[in-house]
Computed example of a mutant assay.
Amino acid sequence: MNVKKTIALLLFCAALIGSKANAATVDTALTHSAAMNRDIKAVVVKPADYTASKKYPVLYLLHGFSGNYSDWIKKIPAITKLADTYHFIIVCPDGAFAGWYFDSPVNKDFMYETYVSTELVNYVDKHYSTIANRKGRAITGLSMGGHGAFFIAFKHQDTFGAAGSMSGVLDIRQFADSYGIEQLLGKYSESPEVWEKHCVLSLIYLIKPNALAITFDCGYDDVMYSGNQKMHEELLMRRIPHDYTVRPGGHSWEYWGNSITYQSLFFSRYFNGEK
């Protein structure tokens, strides 16, 4: 091998090593929920420039019905590039097959509001270099996770300063006999008041104008479209600022992979004080 080829090979190897060094790090964290008395996994994506000497904002990214903590990183691995581009940590918690991200009044094995809003946030702030206040935290998710993100953010505005939803199940009353919700809340016909307390559309009164940076979107062909339209109209009526987008598409990973790119920009602007 001549000198030129040797130098070229060394430069190529150096570039390859450098590219790997300048990539986001994906960890699987084992967290603990005292409320549910069990350990729960979460994916944590740290940006390429992560260092303990710097504080980073955190985006909590929730999965949908029948999914788990690994859904986002497996289905949309490009979220690592979003962490690099916008210099934030992404945390993907487990919300169970049908946990719905609220505290069930009938089954204490499902206390995912407490887990995400308190136990997981405390774990992340303790183990990673974070901006440990609402100005450094945002939460969003798809489908069941979209409802969960709004539900948690609306009720915990002291913890989260920004919230989003992608194809969110924003009116759970539409699905009283589906998706395992009645196992957590009881039958709608028997306890409508319980369902009202756990439905995002019924909790808009908790939001004060400009108190929470809000973004959400839904595909026009999505079965969740009507619930999202209702949310948009209610927010307009109450004069609560928000970003709402309707795009072509349905309830699919192709749609959510596109959606998260726009929402990441929204949250980055919030973290930078532009929202």
Rank of each mutant, 00 (worst) to 15 (best):
8 A>F: 07
10 L>D: 10
13 C>N: 07
18 G>T: 10
21 A>T: 07
23 A>V: 05
26 V>E: 06
33 S>H: 04
33 S>M: 03
34 A>R: 05
39 D>A: 08
43 V>T: 12
47 P>T: 14
49 D>A: 15
58 V>S: 12
71 D>K: 09
78 A>L: 11
78 A>P: 01
79 I>S: 00
79 I>M: 04
84 D>Y: 14
86 Y>F: 12
90 I>L: 14
93 P>R: 11
98 A>D: 11
101 Y>Q: 04
102 F>V: 00
105 P>Q: 11
106 V>Q: 11
119 E>K: 02
123 Y>G: 10
132 A>H: 04
132 A>Q: 04
133 N>G: 08
134 R>K: 15
137 R>C: 08
137 R>P: 01
141 G>E: 12
142 L>I: 13
143 S>A: 08
150 F>I: 02
150 F>S: 02
152 I>V: 13
153 A>G: 13
154 F>P: 01
161 G>T: 13
161 G>A: 15
163 A>Q: 06
168 G>F: 15
169 V>I: 14
169 V>M: 15
173 R>N: 09
176 A>L: 08
178 S>W: 06
196 E>R: 07
201 L>F: 13
202 S>I: 02
202 S>V: 02
210 N>D: 10
218 C>G: 03
225 Y>V: 15
230 K>V: 15
246 V>T: 15
247 R>Q: 11
249 G>P: 02
253 W>P: 06
254 E>W: 00
255 Y>K: 01
257 G>E: 06
260 I>E: 10
266 F>E: 04
266 F>R: 04
269 R>M: 10
272 N>G: 04
275 K>C: 05
275 K>V: 13
